[in-house]
Design a protein around this nucleic acid. Structure first.
Lengths: 248, 248
DNA sequence: TCCAATGACGAACAGTGTTCGTTGACGAAC
DNA sequence: GTTCGTCAACGAACACTGTTCGTCATTGGA
């Protein structure tokens, strides 16, 4: 007689793998693959759709599989953010053009951020640690230092400017957060802003005279104009500090 | 014989109310009571702890009860935000002191926001609609208009300044988001910042020369100093626009 | 006195991040 | 060439989320 166990029938309650897929090694699932899948979900459906389950689904697996490569969702978000930051290009510091260069970089960051829905929500309030985020911070500092901005001012400006960019992109993304596609989002912005305009116009003028009188100006929010306005304020302020004109 | 149904035994599977509390009308549960309970949870445990279940628990009931008074959680958050905004006091516009007044209001908003954990997260990117938020916006506009700031500039400044304040408070709150109590939060900020400092110090200096050289300056983030710096930039920028000195 | 209306609420649904224990395939050792 | 240890992949589950549904008791009005 051979090995008895090989001749026994398989107990019926011992079910086979549900959708076997011919096993694990067929799909070697790396950090890179996961981040790319997450980015695909982000671009197509927005940050709220980037769930562990949705990303896993994109890879044809379950959420538990991702935890072999990332400690938690935050770690995945960090890596997504850094991969996106890789798209940002920096100019070679030119001392003569430093003010314009600070603006250029700010606009570049804003555009890249805006190209990936509401990813800025994952950036606000975090200290940059990824290689690409560090590269950008370094580049911004280099530009300002080349322009003669004192270290302390440059550090403060870097921080404040980052805050401002993130907040601007988040606000812009929030307006059209409903709707899976980008087209739907844009359409919803228009509808929503029109409702807000109506609401503000209907406000009691004796109680909110300035708000009512300035409805048109206030409704320009989300435009590029506000960003350029704030950006200009920052750069001119930094410049005045650079020249040693410090108030207070 | 009387009504038959009164004489029948109660079927055992018909369980009595779990914690009867002598029925509904004993606790008349208003919008105000709910918002106050939510605020208590916010202050004690942070915005993430403000769930419908947690707020309901605070009132000794279940989450479904809240939906008789609020359409959804966002509506509750809006009302929380406006109640908090009620704490903000505004100065009487004084044309001669408008620049200092703009700063005063900004500091006041910041302090009130910071007094309620990470409530600023619920403010960023939303258009103010509640009476108290409108009151503050109106007050800020009144101050700037009294100071001779043109309508368009005032509108842009209102928007950008709000963005900046919210972002600053959010960043400040994020550092210490772990830990239920405020003390724990503060302790964690120190630990976290120290880790970050170590990380930055260990960075390759040939690749990130400015970052490494400026670790000390960069680590001042979260301080009042950065806020005052950005605030000063804004106000001086607004002032220059008010005087008709417009660049670009 | 009865009845309609309404607020309170238990239970449930579909979704979330995360953990646990099992399984199966691979590379290294014998 | 076979065995074996390691570790990624994964099914299932846990505790949680916002929200909905249907039912119940209480109350104000007729």
């Amino acid at each position: 007689m051979g090995d008895a166990s090989t001749e026994l029938p398989v107990p019926p309650w011992r079910k086979p793998r549900k959708s076997g897929r011919s096993a694990a090694a067929r799909r070697p699932l790396t950090r890179e693959l996961i981040v790319e899948a997450a980015l695909r979900v982000l671009d197509a459906e927005g940050l709220d759709a980037v769930t562990m389950r949705r990303v896993a689904q994109e890879l044809g697996t379950g959420p538990a599989s991702l935890y072999a490569h990332f400690a938690n969702k935050d770690e995945l978000l960090e890596e997504m953010l850094d991969l996106i930051a890789a798209e940002i290009t920096l100019p070679e510091p030119d001392a003569a053009r430093w003010q314009e260069q600070v603006k250029e970089v700010a606009r570049e960051i804003r555009e890249v951020w805006r190209g990936h829905r509401d990813i800025a929500r994952a950036s606000l309030g975090t200290i940059p640690t990824g290689p690409n985020q560090l590269r950008i911070a370094e580049g911004q500092l280099a530009i300002m230092r080349a322009g003669g901005v004192p270290p302390r001012i440059a550090a403060l400006a870097l921080d404040s400017l980052g805050l401002f960019i993130d907040a601007d992109v988040i606000e812009g993304a929030m307006m059209g957060e409903k709707g899976a596609t980008n087209e739907e989002a844009h359409a919803n912005v228009a509808v929503y802003l029109d409702q807000v305009r109506q609401y503000f116009t209907a406000l009691p003028a004796e109680r909110y005279p300035n708000l009512v009188a300035m409805v048109d100006e206030l409704m320009r929010a989300g435009d590029d104009e506000r960003f350029e306005f704030g950006l200009d304020l920052f750069v001119r302020g930094i410049a005045s500090h650079a020249r040693g004109i410090v108030s207070g």
